[in-house]
Write a protein that binds this DNA or RNA. Structure first.
Lengths: 342, 342
DNA sequence: ATGAAAGCGCTAACAT
DNA sequence: ATGTTAGCGCTTTCAT
């Protein structure tokens, strides 16, 4: 009974041609009210669902947006950045009637192999790439004809459209806050410097010191990589230079810093103040148990996801227009680790 | 130059018909070695990519597997269960040459509306549903013709295929462990009892007490819902009945229990031992900072994801066969909160 | 082992 | 405002 419904059949049931039914389904103008009603009626009664493949073949659109997440497995396991991003992206997809295809690459080979396949002809209407770094083989995707939007400014590709949070200003705010609390020897543990997030947060740190007339001391700058191990060691390495505060470029690293300081017998914030970045330790879970609760810069991750989809759809709709550069604001979240509050 | 490549064109370049090229691409047998070579050669040289929509239209397969996650936003924000599950599912999809379409529902309406659309004709080859509860509107998806696999046993639909971890045995193991440590008044905070995970873990708790000759004391059983708030209050409610240990049906709730006990001035594990469930506080992040580190039951979440895809593909390949019931083992992870180690 | 040809179900240009 | 018709690019019988 079911399963064999086609436009043609719906048309004959409604007493119109299949073209009219198609127009009704696709919300074309210039359809008589009563005809539209009748057609919708039949569609509802029969439970007809258009065949997606046929639509795609004829229209050259699939309604599929791809989200590509590179091989930094660690991050996906470790914190809630990607879950929140995906949440935002998914929500925006639902709202715009698109479907989200998720590509997570687990190995370099997979990344190489599948990257090409992601671009399969007529498979995706557009592509969102999250978390690239400079030498990422995913960069090749940026060169395709397909509409692409990157999350996190891709420094090596100034012509690419992207959505990002204001890393420089976020870091600046964090450090300025520490300065306002009276700290003078403010150290930093940076993120990966081959990613915009790492570079720009470092720049914000430097700018804050400079603009407030504090000297830049290279010994107070440790190169991290967003991973915990280096952050732990980096913190220990900083101690001989007696920082009175540390700005750590991610919360995940900041946890290691807290641990290292505790292991060294130092109290936070009494001996050393700490500010993180990301606000990924959700209130509801770990925060109340982390001691002391982490002052940090919150990124509007969910909104970045939503924005990414909206911007991508705009690119799809208006190709051959200048690249989009969307930069969202961040927010200073004050908790105990900076010493501003008890 | 590019972009207009079709089977026909590849065929003429290789000196064969388009049918032969199709066979080569789809690894059909009965193709002369040299012909296959020649065709593959041309494909590689031209960078030809088959048009997905056309393939789907003709073959009635899309290579798309859907993953549906119901509207329990909270969970996605809060812990790493879904990220790990998605990771496993994605990996298995990559390996089998399928693409993962992700559907996250954020509101009830979305769930109602989109659930039908997920079933759009010829859009998905199959469907994985994660984290349903009894009255979930998603249950309607189980009634469709489409191959469906559920993660987490759907108690109301005994004929559905599913993958789950052994909740009952996991809980049993946790409680038996507490008993072996000499605890006598073991309380529990259960999960949602309208989900198998909640019900079965509760059953495991009961079985462990019974089999070890301990009495069941209803006052030591608090109904939780996998959320933090009830767990906090539930823990406080338990205290007058002087439990010497608490088995909490999820790590997330167990954190609240730890907090409540601390707030009540009780020491863990000295005054009260605690065992959680899930092992979602990844070693690399919060664990070292949670005090005391949580003894817990680890679920093979990643493997459940992989298994889900494999089982679904098996169902797609062999329809009209009995439902699959895959139950994976769990593992007791001993840390400090149970008092077994220092 | 290969080719010819018939669709798959829809959209969109064209015609009226 | 609606119908007619020509593909879209592939898979899959059916021949040979």
């Amino acid at each position: 009974m079911d399963g064999k419904l086609t436009l043609e059949k719906i048309g004959s049931l409604a007493g119109v041609s299949r073209a009219t039914v198609s127009r009704v389904i696709n919300n074309h103008p210039n359809i008589r009210k009563d005809v539209r009603q009748r057609v919708l009626q039949v569609i509802a009664e029969t439970g007809y669902q258009p065949n997606q493949a046929a639509r795609s073949l004829a229209s050259k659109r699939t309604g599929l947006l791809g989200l590509v997440i590179p091989r930094l497995i660690q991050a996906l396991f470790t914190d809630l950045y990607y879950p929140r991003l995906i949440q935002g992206i998914s929500q925006a997809c639902n709202e715009s009637g698109h479907t989200l295809a998720l590509f997570i690459f687990h190995t370099d080979e997979e990344e190489q192999q599948l990257a090409a396949q992601v671009l399969r002809q007529g498979f995706l209407d557009g592509l969102i790439i999250a978390g690239m770094h400079f030498s990422d083989p995913l960069n090749q995707l940026l060169l395709s004809e397909k509409p692409v939007l990157v999350i996190g400014e891709p420094l090596a590709y100034p012509q690419a459209s992207f959505v990002d949070a204001d890393n420089r200003l976020g870091a600046y705010t964090a450090v300025a806050h520490l300065i306002s609390l009276g700290h003078q020897r403010i150290a930093t543990i940076t993120g990966r410097l081959d990613m915009a997030a790492g570079q720009q947060r470092r720049q914000g740190y430097l700018d804050a010191l400079t603009e407030h007339g504090l000297p830049i001391d290279e010994q107070l700058i440790v190169a991290g990589d967003f991973e915990q191990e280096k952050a732990y060691q980096g913190t220990l390495d900083l101690l001989p230079h007696q920082p009175d505060a540390i700005f750590v470029a991610s919360d995940s690293m900041a946890l290691s810093t807290l641990r290292a300081l505790a292991d060294a017998g130092l109290q936070v914030p009494k001996d050393v103040a700490v500010v993180g970045y990301d606000d990924l330790m959700a209130e509801e879970t770990a925060v109340p148990l982390i001691n002391p609760p982490l002052t940090t810069i919150r990124q509007p991750i969910h909104r970045m996801g939503v924005q990414a989809v909206q911007t991508l759809l705009d690119i799809i709709k208006n190709p051959h227009t200048p690249p989009r550069r969307v930069i969202l604001p961040t927010e200073l979240i004050i908790r105990q680790s900076c010493g501003a509050v008890q």
